[in-house]
């Protein structure tokens, strides 16, 4: 296409010039024709490709409900870290746009040290959604942080098992996820 444009720009000079030598004019005309052919070929290619590409793009949008562009669970619901600072522990997730986690399906268990105890996760208020099968539920978009505390007579948690489950807004849900994560100690 780039090579076609200069030829096309020169065309009026070649055809409209009154006092030009004929061989040079013919050469310019031939060049203009070649440019025109290249342009037409390029256009034909674009015309051929466009309907398919546009249709594919259209479907890939609805394909989020048809499956084409869905993220894997670990990309959709990224468990970022479990960080301890003093007597508080914070677990954080990054939830990709177009995806959400269910509050009621978030769980945390202590794996180490043995015998350590942990309270239930404290979660922010989520967006309430209603469904004929599942009733009311709270969901989270974007970033999410859960705060956890443990009894004074228990050792601080070092390793956790974190459970969560979520869906894509496009109408696909992911199986419950379970991940083991080490607790990072932050300076106080």
């Amino acid at each position: 296409m780039n090579s076609a444009a200069p030829d096309r720009e020169r065309q009026p000079q070649a055809v409209g010039g009154g006092n030009v030598d004929r061989p040079a004019a013919k050469a310019r005309l031939r060049a203009a024709c070649r440019g025109g052919l290249r342009l037409a070929l390029g256009s034909a290619l674009l015309l051929g490709l466009c309907p398919g590409l546009v249709a594919a793009e259209g479907l890939s949008l609805s394909n989020d409900h048809a499956g084409g562009n869905l993220l894997k669970a670990d990309q959709a619901f990224r468990l970022v870290a479990a960080e301890r600072q003093g007597q508080s522990l914070r677990i954080s997730w990054d939830i990709a746009p177009g995806y959400y986690l269910y509050r009621k399906r978030i769980s945390v268990q202590v794996l180490a040290p043995a015998g350590a105890r942990l309270g239930a996760p404290e979660l922010p208020k989520g967006e309430v959604v209603h469904d004929e099968y599942q009733g009311s539920a709270e969901i989270y978009h974007g970033s999410l942080q859960a705060a956890l505390r443990w009894p004074a007579d228990s050792a601080p948690p070092r390793r956790l098992r974190v459970g969560y489950q979520g869906c894509a807004e496009a109408g696909v849900c992911y199986p419950p996820q379970s991940r083991q994560i080490d607790v990072i100690d932050l300076p106080q």
Binding site: L45, L47, G48, L49, P51, G52, L53, A55
Partner: peptide, 12 residues
Amino acid sequence: GLIAGAAGYGFY
């Protein structure tokens, strides 16, 4: 044009 169309449809 036909080949490009077919390729586009195949991609779709």
